[in-house]
Simulated scan of single mutants.
Amino acid sequence: MTSTNNLINYGTLVLKLFQYNIKVIFANKFIYFLVAAVLFFVMLVTIALFDDPVMNEALIFGFLMFPGILLMFYPIAYGIQNDDDSKMLEIIFGIPNYRYKVWLLRFVMIILVVLFNLYLLCLLANFTILQFDIFPMLYRLLFPITFLASLGFMLSTLVKSGNGTAIVMVIVGLIFLIFIEPLEYSAWNIFLNPYGEPRDMNQTIWMQVVLKNRLYLTIGSIVTLLYAMFNLQSREKFVS
């Protein structure tokens, strides 16, 4: 009986911790980004339907990519500033190594929330546009979104301002977009579409390109996340 009560108490504590961090991360403004992401997705699909293209998984991947980026944009850019505004920054820095656990947990929560909302968009697309395997699609979307989230989190530890981080993220995103066409089928393309296999490329070579792309994005995510954690060692830069 005691072990059951302990388990219930632990579960309640985890739930409260999750709810609290969700409130801090999204600061009641996430709903605007969620609505914008859904509207953006619907707009892309509507434009594509009027152009009358042959619907396939490559197009669906592209439709889902940018709403996913939009969903992670606010919590990543404004995470540290929200802590500052809620007077939690000094408390987090006041407990040794606590900040790593808090912000790593929040980073994982952001990715999970984004994936959940992308799952709902996948269901919508599956019923209205084209039937496809949802979980493989989410798995492939996870790589670029996690990398961009890690990069954005690193930038937030350097800029230390929500608005400043947002501006820098937009500039970096535009730079990546400029190189989409010249790097369209390159492993270095952040937005590489794994479903968009070129006709003139051997399938085995294409699979190697996709595999290298995932490897580069994974390494980039780890490096930028570790660098962000390293930046968080300097308490004086954040708390004055």
Rank of each mutant, 00 (worst) to 15 (best):
S161Y: 03
M154S: 04
F127E: 14
A187I: 01
P182K: 11
L141N: 00
F176N: 11
M154E: 05
L174D: 03
S161H: 11
N126G: 01
E197K: 15
L183W: 06
F176E: 06
Y139E: 03
E181V: 15
A166R: 12
F143D: 01
M169A: 08
T128R: 11
T165E: 08
V170N: 08
A125H: 03
I129T: 07
A166T: 12
L177M: 15
Q131F: 00
A166Q: 09
F127V: 05
I134D: 00
V168K: 09
N126W: 06
Q131M: 04
I190E: 08
L155P: 01
F127C: 02
A166N: 11
S156W: 10
T146V: 12
I175R: 07
S161G: 12
K160E: 14
Y185S: 12
L158W: 10
Q131P: 00
F132E: 02
T146L: 09
L141S: 01
E197Y: 03
M154P: 02
F153S: 11
G196T: 04
I145E: 05
M137Y: 00
L174I: 15
V159K: 13
V170D: 05
Y195R: 00
V170F: 15
L155H: 01
E184W: 12
L183P: 02
G152S: 11
A187W: 01
P182G: 11
F132H: 12
R140N: 09
L138Q: 09
P182I: 05
G162Y: 06
V168W: 04
I129C: 07
P144Q: 11
F135H: 06
W188V: 10
V168C: 06
N126F: 04
P194R: 01
I180G: 02
Y185F: 14
N163L: 13
Y139K: 09
E197W: 02
F127I: 04
I129R: 06
A149D: 04
Q131E: 13
D133W: 03
P182M: 11
F147E: 02
P182W: 06
N189W: 06
V159W: 06
L174F: 14
T146K: 05
L130M: 13
T157K: 14
G196I: 00
F153P: 02
W188R: 09
T165A: 10
V168P: 07
M154I: 03
F132A: 07
I190C: 12
G152L: 10
V168N: 08
L138M: 09
F179T: 08
I171C: 09
Y185E: 04
I178H: 04
R140T: 00
G196R: 12
T128S: 14
E197I: 07
Q131V: 01
A125F: 05
L138N: 03
L124T: 07
L123E: 12
